[in-house]
Design a protein around this nucleic acid. Sequence first.
DNA 1: GTGAAAGCGCTAACAT
DNA 2: ATGTTAGCGCTTTCAC
Lengths: 339, 339
Amino acid sequence: MSTPTLRDVAVAAGVHAATASRALNPATRGLVNTETARRVIRAAESLGYRPNPIARGLKTAKSGTIGVLIPDLTNPLFPPILRGIERTLEAAGYSALVVNTDNDQIREQGLVDSLLSRQVEGLIVATARIDHPLLVQLHQQGVVMVMVNRRPDGVDAPAVAPDDPAGVYLAVQHLTALGHRRIAHLGGPETTSTGVARARAFRAAIRDHGADEDPALTATCASWSEEAGADALRGLLDAGTDFTAIVAGNDLIALGCYDVFAERDIACPERMSVVGFNDMPFLDKLRPPLTTVGIPNQDIGAEAARMLLELLAQPHRPPLSVQFPLKLVVRGSTAPPPA
Amino acid sequence: MSTPTLRDVAVAAGVHAATASRALNPATRGLVNTETARRVIRAAESLGYRPNPIARGLKTAKSGTIGVLIPDLTNPLFPPILRGIERTLEAAGYSALVVNTDNDQIREQGLVDSLLSRQVEGLIVATARIDHPLLVQLHQQGVVMVMVNRRPDGVDAPAVAPDDPAGVYLAVQHLTALGHRRIAHLGGPETTSTGVARARAFRAAIRDHGADEDPALTATCASWSEEAGADALRGLLDAGTDFTAIVAGNDLIALGCYDVFAERDIACPERMSVVGFNDMPFLDKLRPPLTTVGIPNQDIGAEAARMLLELLAQPHRPPLSVQFPLKLVVRGSTAPPPA
DNA sequence: GTGAAAGCGCTAACAT
DNA sequence: ATGTTAGCGCTTTCAC
């Protein structure tokens, strides 16, 4: 009385299991008599037959499953990405096996092992550090993968990422248009490619807009967190550096700035402007609402999944990477500098 | 040169595949000579053998996989729950197959079909509506499941949920202690058990604390969202109802109140206090920071997973439900009523 | 204690 | 166009 098997369907339709298989699979249905096919399909329906992808996978060496490596699902950046991934995979009959690595290399190793032994056909990796030996190794082993947001050195896999430089450019442009000349950057960790890329883009954008190029205006945060952002800002302030605006490496770092503003009674945006990066949810509820660079995360996820599916279909395509355009979301945390 | 199979290990160790299987499985290792077992294990290690759970599953009818139904991963309530689930499953050698239902019944049906055909051993369901025919049906079919947060009528599965009445009680207690007598409730939709339970608990708490029991003080939101919360509050205000504090059905609804406060120039907390429910991230960054009832979501998820595993191990256990204690997080959105 | 053999549900040659 | 056979990688009787 358990779930009916292909054999049951075949018996009910009066055919051999192989024929039933062919009839049920749209790709091979052409090989079988239309009338027989209809009969098999009807039998399958009336029995409530559902194919067992596990058994199929054992035979075809395809699991219909993609592994997704996320560092921390609690970071609001990732759920929309995952959403996009799932939608796309789902439409293609694939499922996502999602794991949280907690940015822990040991954990990651174990989780990847587990994914691989579960026969995932490919990996979508949103956890890349610049130096990422595990990924290099997997890539060499021929594991098909697509990177999201970041691409480590030495891994020649396609990546889909926001166009960070363009985003930073938008932020700096906005601030200089408001009249700011001394703009600080609170960058993400130098161990992340995102951190490095945004910092580099910041320097270029400052130059392009003719603002002050002062190395003292750049600080690096120990992590992408409020605390690290607050620490970095305190450092800048304590050093006596003079500036009227901040481009934060991401929204969390910008939130850290808010903490310091409260601590030291700095009026935002009157005395200091800040721009975040990511457009996390609920930023519009802050006081002041945070001006930030918005990233189309769901689209990015969807594109990553699309690319992976394509790569699986055509293993020898050149790995093209794509960059998504960003948009500045202007809210209340930016204003002209104090006179 | 692909990944080594059990047979390869067996050959390397000079034994039969069956023996290798026994040696590698801790549960059956006792059946085999200690020395042979050691040899097999060594061979497995040196070949980098990793068992194929798919093949194992085909034989044992166990996939090592649990389906998790989430309405919307973008809702910050769910990532921590999922975190707790994954941690627990992972420790037990299980993996989670996570799907977003978008609260869409058709979609949900399809996703559940897909999970079931992927042979999930059980379901953790965080999407329950009060009336949920699909779950009733699955439950009748003997699908093992555990509910998170809500339990629909007619489904006799264990549930792990926050102790909502206790949370509402804390909120009301806090407000009455501050001196509020006329307290409004902006409840969640009546189609959700959470909405109904919290509204009921609100009335009871009001009575227990001797505050005004006025039916006009209770409104129901069309959904658990900012917009719906704002709409409900506008309705109450427009009706001329008099009150000095609000217990919102959840944080999103409370955020909707903030919008209306801004719209109508109502000072919070001076003229109106609000308490949320859930303690979403970043609530402490709002102006004013939101007082809310905190829910140990990760613990809840972990417990749900634990219960499901237990249920799988002992199918005929009585379905015990558990309720998690909540704590009030007092921030800046609550103060004594205006004099 | 270990090997032989069968089979989980399905699909892909191969044969008819 | 359909049936036969074999086998994916593993576990589990059942013999020995």
